[in-house]
Design a protein around this nucleic acid. Structure first.
Lengths: 349, 349
DNA sequence: GTGAAAGCGCTAACAC
DNA sequence: GTGTTAGCGCTTTCAC
């Protein structure tokens, strides 16, 4: 009688309420509710009584209590950099796939923006708060902090890192750049540039790994075609200035790979503003396949990353890891696909 | 001695460990750790001992246990429709503001996509799981389900609804459409159309409220200018067909309001593909201010919604509501701003 | 097979 | 001021 909380009509029913209703012990009801019929020895009639009572009271196990008792939260943290808003452009399909997969598997997602001081967001990534975490698109500077986050199953998405202990899912950016470059070479281009505009001089002076990868693929394709001496990577001009340098012939380029879709759109804008035409005067190819690239005039040739697959695969790997299964390759590199559209054409000079 | 778990070096220290280390009771340590010095009567020396011990052991309160004991999770659910991926276009700044505000206030965000059967996501929105929820951009069909979610403080973002019990933060879409229409009228246009492409015939046949609002503002501005008879809302043609109807003169329009930025880009694409020029042959204005609209050629005139403010305000209102403070207007309508760019110009005929 | 009881780790009354 | 104790609601040994 001491701890017997009376089943006030507005009070959510607890396990104890159900047990009383069914005339059983709480432990018995708990078993009936959580274990598959075969996995526990429970009288058929007993089980039925328990289930009926729960049903009758509209019982739902209290999530908080369950989390404490089971030492699990069925929640994963999705850590992302605020500079590249969650699900923008490249991240859109990734995050959608994460959401789909995790909710299908009964996991909740805690959205954790990396913002400011690391102590703030590190708070969310603790074993008593989440069961695992996905790290989306981190820059090297953040990665080093994240790497220290011990004791949590973790999968990195879209990051190349040489720490062999970390599981990661990445797109084959290197190959994408190679494909795009070869496509341009195939169109007769010889003077092909790579344009990239760093976000901002960040503290650690390190760009996202994909910059390196894409430039690498570009260089290699150029070298393979005997055009190594024509390689030109420009990273210190704003789009308008870059276009000007092409017009002035200081920069010789009939085709340009642009680091990402965003910069490509910006560059295209400047190109047309200065009266150049694409692809007649300049061919433009880029990375990421967001739908709006089709709506540009001309529509943009781009390297499509396997966003959806990356998200789904990362989620599945994490779920497995949280289950204790750490098998499989540390780095999974997924293939990309070149989508040729109107912004790249034969060299015209 | 009975319940004294030995402080194994790899075991996370608990309150009991700290208490033992400090030679105090757990309750005392709990007070010292959680209450501001003035709010509780604790010996200066005692408090110091408690803090030192916690520090020494690297103690962090277990989140799960705290949640159970306090009946709070310091987590809010952010419910959004998967059809409009979280943070795409219009939502980008909203979700960023939510993230900023909530994390600054110590709240976690649970990301809850509305996908498929409502039972799946309703699971996340229970008082034992989260302390409150934000509902982003819901369509009427979902809204009715959400409305039943009882007992949770809730703030709707970007939805007009006549249920007086629900707090909501909305942009003044009606006024935006009015401003844009007046802008076009001011440029000499008389035949001004409104173009809108429904997503898909959804089950309930209801469009997002902003459709109604924007068309309403457009109609009103036309009527106010004595152009009521020229109102033409087209919703049953795809962009290409609509452009064709303009070329054929079946549709008389020298200017068009397009429902959103996405459809506007698509329409612009079709316009240019058919050899029309904007704004010379057709002026185009739209809604939502995502950066890429500037990169279009021509850049697009648009009605910018107060995304950031909406997000921040919604978060603050929810935090207040979770604290028990339900004061303030049920509907907060935030002003929008017209951004005139290159896609709208004087009528040329 | 079923039930009693001991936690999970913390907070909050209430004695002392 | 500080310690004792009783929960928060569920899971899970372990007797019976």
């Amino acid at each position: 009688m001491s701890a017997a909380s009376s089943p006030k009509s507005l009070h959510k029913p607890t396990l104890a309420d159900v047990a009383r209703e069914a005339g059983l012990a709480t432990s018995t009801v708990s078993l009936a509710l959580n274990r598959p019929p075969d996995e526990c020895r429970l009288g058929k009639e007993t089980r039925r009584r328990a289930l009926m009572a729960a049903e009758a009271l509209g019982y739902r196990a209290n999530w908080r209590a369950k989390a404490l008792a089971q030492q699990k939260t069925f929640t994963v943290a999705v850590i992302y950099a605020r500079e590249t808003p969650y699900s923008t452009g490249a991240n859109e399909a990734i995050s959608d796939a994460l959401a789909q997969t995790f909710s299908a598997e009964g996991y909740y997602q805690l959205l954790v923006p990396i913002v400011g001081d690391s102590s703030a967001w590190r708070d969310a990534v603790r074993p008593d708060r989440v069961d695992g975490c996905i790290v989306l698109n981190p820059k090297p500077a953040n990665l080093s902090v994240i790497r220290e986050t011990t004791g949590l199953p973790m999968v990195l998405v879209n990051v190349v890192d040489d720490d062999p202990g970390l599981t990661r899912v990445v797109p084959d950016d290197h190959d994408g750049a190679r494909q795009l470059t070869e496509h341009l070479i195939g169109l007769g281009h010889r003077n092909i540039g790579f344009y990239f505009r760093p976000d901002e001089p960040n503290e650690h002076g390190q760009d996202h790994f994909s910059v390196t990868e894409r430039i690498g693929g570009y260089r290699q394709a150029m070298a393979d075609a005997g055009l190594g001496h024509r390689v030109s990577v420009v990273a210190d001009l704003d789009p308008a200035a870059y276009v000007q340098s092409i017009i002035d012939r200081r920069e010789k380029a009939s085709a340009v790979l642009v680091y990402d879709h965003f910069q490509a759109m910006h560059l295209m804008h400047c190109v047309q503003e200065r009266g150049l035409r694409a692809p007649e005067d300049l061919s433009l190819g880029t990375f990421n396949d967001t739908r709006i690239l089709e709506y540009m005039n001309p529509s943009l040739t781009t390297v499509a990353l396997p966003d959806h697959d990356m998200g789904e695969l990362a989620a599945r790997r994490l779920i497995r890891a949280m289950g204790g299964d750490h098998a499989g390759a540390r780095e999974v590199r997924l293939p990309v696909r070149l989508k040729v559209r109107a912004s790249t054409g034969p060299v015209s000079s």
